[in-house]
Simulated scan of single mutants.
Amino acid sequence: MALKCVAIDDEPLALELIKNYVSRFPGLQLVQVFEDALSGAEYLKQNPVDLLFVDVNMPDISGVELVRSLVNSPMIIFTTAYRNYAFESYELQAIDYLLKPIDFNRFTAAVEKAIDFHKYKNATQENTSDESIYVYSEYKMIKILLRDIEYIESMGDYLKIYLCNADKPVLTLMTMKKVLERLPEDQFARVHRSFIVALTKIKSIHNRKVNLTHVEVPVGDAYSGFINQQKGI
């Protein structure tokens, strides 16, 4: 089934370009376009859609304000001629952030991320080796296979997700509680207020420390029961 899309932009030429680009994707259905942000916002409150292309700079309300006003926000792809709204797109966990004039190849990459993310949200995953989560990092949605995660470290409001054979961790704005809700309990365990480990990556546990493939992390006092669980006690 095609994703229902809406495009909002006060520039008619920009809307025509998006209409043209969307028409090239059988997996997308453009149900409405608006040159007026307030009319677009009102439509979205009454008509749920899957994907919204929205300009950031508009005369009545900005695209950022529009998205914040929505109770049930669809997937968002921001379009703008300015780079200084990148943080807002990150904060609102937009699928992507496209700079005008929008190149078709760049548009394609953004749409493919949206389609992939939609499938992820609605799929029933049967093969654990293919299980994944999506996190927002570097102004875009990143797909992470669960089997690639070695451990996760909390850094205040951010998480560092360390992957096997990756040069650097994935940094994302998320709490430990939130990421634990997305991770299978039989594959991951919290062993410290600042650490979650992948059970399959544990090599040994000694002196309240968990030795993983590439690092050693402590077991916190509040999580000492984890050690007994691994011993089968």
Rank of each mutant, 00 (worst) to 15 (best):
M1G: 12
M1P: 12
M1R: 12
L3T: 07
L3E: 11
A7H: 04
I8V: 15
D10L: 01
E11R: 01
P12R: 01
L13G: 02
A14Q: 03
E16I: 02
I18D: 03
N20P: 01
Y21I: 04
S23T: 01
F25V: 02
F25D: 00
P26G: 03
G27R: 07
G27C: 03
Q29F: 06
Q32I: 02
V33T: 15
D36N: 15
E42Q: 12
N47M: 05
D50S: 10
L51Q: 12
V54G: 06
V54Y: 03
D55F: 02
D55L: 01
N57Y: 01
M58P: 00
M58L: 04
P59K: 06
S62Y: 00
G63L: 03
V64A: 02
E65H: 04
R68I: 01
S69F: 07
L70G: 05
L70A: 04
V71S: 10
N72Q: 14
F78N: 04
A81T: 08
N84A: 03
Y85E: 00
E88Y: 02
Q93S: 13
Y97N: 07
L98S: 04
L99S: 04
L99R: 03
K100P: 03
F104I: 11
F104W: 00
R106I: 13
F107A: 06
A109Y: 07
A110P: 05
V111M: 08
E112I: 06
K113Q: 10
A114T: 09
D116T: 10
H118E: 13
K119H: 12
N122D: 06
E126L: 15
N127G: 05
D130R: 13
E131Q: 14
S132P: 06
V135G: 09
V135T: 06
Y136C: 13
S137C: 09
Y139P: 00
I144D: 09
L146H: 07
R147K: 15
I149S: 09
I149Q: 10
E150I: 11
Y151W: 14
S154T: 13
S154L: 13
G156Y: 08
Y158I: 06
K160W: 07
L163G: 08
C164M: 14
C164D: 13
P169Q: 08
P169I: 14
T172V: 06
K177F: 10
V179W: 03
E185W: 01
R190H: 08
H192E: 07
R193W: 05
R193T: 09
R193Q: 15
F195V: 07
A198H: 11
K201Q: 14
I202Y: 10
K203D: 11
S204Y: 09
H206Y: 10
N211I: 11
T213Y: 08
T213C: 09
V217R: 07
V217F: 09
G220H: 05
A222S: 15
F226S: 06
K231T: 05
